[in-house]
Nucleic acid binder design. Structure first.
Lengths: 223, 223, 223, 223
DNA sequence: TATGAATGAGCATTCATTCAT
DNA sequence: TATGAATGAATGCTCATTCAT
């Protein structure tokens, strides 16, 4: 999933705008947000650059230029900091998908295409490529993370379901959800192969096309 | 990817047999393999049960009933042990896919279906659900892991390419590979959603059907 | 030492009434005392329930619902807070013993018995069992605590000395004090064995009888 | 309780010899025992000199001249180290009391007197004065410590019971135990008042005499 | 009076690694 | 091959205390 849309990449009108706070702020020191936001921002950078295992209380404190004691004042334990980090990364997507669901009017096919493109483009970003696999691992072990991830994908799939239903109101609720799940899963998997600096990134364009075609055909033709 | 095939699950004749050594050996104490194999076996269990972060030299040593010093004799540093662990988990798949490529005769559509089913079933196993996301994270940070993962997926895609080519010899090499990549990625992504004890596991059967249908149609109809 | 006298336990007329403020106040939120008293009350509960090592500035602040900064406004360092805590716990006893000394009229044997019973009953209370050993440890290391403890036991022994002198005016001052010291020490020691939830608490009644008999005989017969 | 008997203090023949390893070894660096013994020895000194709260893993490691990691190699957690420390301090007493019970022949009155004197003298030692109150506090909060303390006092009281029974075979088992409990408790309490560097240490001699007289009379005359 | 934010030292514990035996 | 003993850095966390507001 992407928030730095390489917009020259679009093949269809992207009528959706990201209304949430931009996930990638300037790296410059003078930071506007609260201390908590500042900390989480540092944690996110760390996670993106060195992985979740580098996101320790002490590392984050050091990188934030504050003492471990002070970090613990703001996040009284690691779990809380991690939860806040996940929230901070996931929130923009959540807002995005909620907005999508609310605003999707006009041609539903165009709207669905836009959503798929958004996801397919986003997955090439460093943040997404680095973050989501970590989230998947986390969700396998940690109930809280699983919930946070679940909430995201539920919202995401909710948006898909709405759009599919606009296109194919004849499908049952169950069938619609199954189709949405296939779409969601089959796109997420591409992160590993055509994500940021991955081995098959040169196939990004081709895969995007295949994906769009295949999915649109599936939605149109399934019964 | 799966090694404990719930065979009553099959929807097509599974003509392929797993010829590789079974990834889940007996847990019983009298262990046949070398000391190194023994150690890696313990490491794998640990990884499956508690995640890669639990696979430390000390934990593996303790769980293996040997001293840290002795573990370092066998694997002189962590990286080496990790590499051996990845190899050990990936090897059966490698052998499987190489066998597949070599043996795939008869009806290529049936053969491709069998491969896809194998992967779709395997992804529901605990081992696969736990291991692969960890591998994806690792590959994002660690060149060695990326190589090992790359080798696996190259072999896997090699098999797919061979089968697609049997079905659609008219497609260009490039196109064939793109199709194979879509297949591979779209299936891997399902691990996160319908893997072992995941939130959408009840959709496993439905998703398998959609996946098989969609992919076969793609292979048949793409140009 | 006890303030919740299980009065059905008495074997002699208890002519003494506790005039000091009750050490166990109502736990209810609307607290009448000053903020300082409030804080110390929280500290005492903490000490009784979790030991002196749990009585940290932060714990007390948190439990009192105030900030660490504010706690430091009231007690500018830990030592001061601890001193106030000791005072607060010891003060009721102090008042009790001073009252005793002043009021002991009538039969001195009955009066002495009443004092001993008071102590013997009190030592079974949670507060006393938990607090006094902590005080003894503290007094071994900390001069201030030693002084506070010394003041208590001086007052306690002063009362005993007065009563012994009423019974045995023939004894020398020195001898009287030695007897008082034996009484005091031999009773305090019972805290460890028949105090609140201790291993020999079932011997409380028997030990009380032995103690009273032995001490009264000692007072009567010593020379 | 004492192991450095100030022998010029005795008023009766002390026929018992301490057969256990001496609890107070030379402070000199060249230490004969195992590394574990060495560590516990350091821990004991620390406890005696600065209290149990100074006995932290890091302090003990530093004072022992080893790294924290190495200390954790020998005692894998604090609880274990503490347990070993308690054991190390209590063991000599345990051996002493077991020996006492086994060897007490000849005049039982002399033997009982010897035991009481041993305890009364020992309680004036720094080690005992510092250690036992800490143990009492610990036993109030920690089951393991309570057990270790209980074992000691059980053995101690076992010895007393044996001797009382030799003197007064006419008493019931229950009564004998009650008398032993009074003796034990009333002497332990003296630690706080006439222990090492305590406020009433000048009364040590007098209190010893009162104690011996009172207890012997109690044993002889009780019914 | 009160808070919020901060510090820096200390805590128990785990880690990869080394090395003599 | 194997162990036992060691190191030193890192981890999450708690602490008394300070200070501007």
């Amino acid at each position: 999933m992407n928030s730095n849309l390489p917009s020259n990449y679009s093949t269809s009108a992207l009528i959706l705008t990201i209304t949430s706070k931009p996930p990638n702020r300037q790296k410059a020191k003078p930071f506007a947000g609260s201390r908590k936001d500042q900390i989480i921002d540092v944690a996110r950078e760390l996670m993106i650059d060195e992985g979740l295992s580098a996101v320790t209380m002490r590392r984050v404190a050091r990188e934030s230029g504050i003492s471990p004691g002070n970090l613990h004042y703001h996040f009284s334990n690691y779990e809380l900091m991690l939860g806040a980090l996940l929230d901070a990364v996931l929130e923009p997507y959540l807002i995005k998908f909620e907005t999508l669901k609310a605003e999707s009017q006009g041609n539903p096919v165009t709207a669905l295409t836009a959503v798929l493109e958004y996801i397919l483009d986003d997955l090439a970003s460093k943040k997404t490529t680095m973050f989501f696999p970590e989230l998947w691992v986390l969700a396998n072990r940690d109930d809280k993370a699983e919930q946070q991830m679940g909430k995201l994908y539920d919202t995401y799939m909710g948006a898909l379901i709405g759009l599919i239903n606009d296109i194919r109101p004849d499908l049952s609720k169950k069938r619609t959800k199954e189709i949405a799940l296939y779409i969601c899963a089959s796109i997420e998997g591409q992160t590993v192969f055509i994500g940021y600096e991955t081995t098959h990134k040169q196939y990004r364009k081709a895969l995007k096309k295949i994906t769009l075609t295949t999915i649109m055909k599936l939605v149109m033709e399934t019964d």
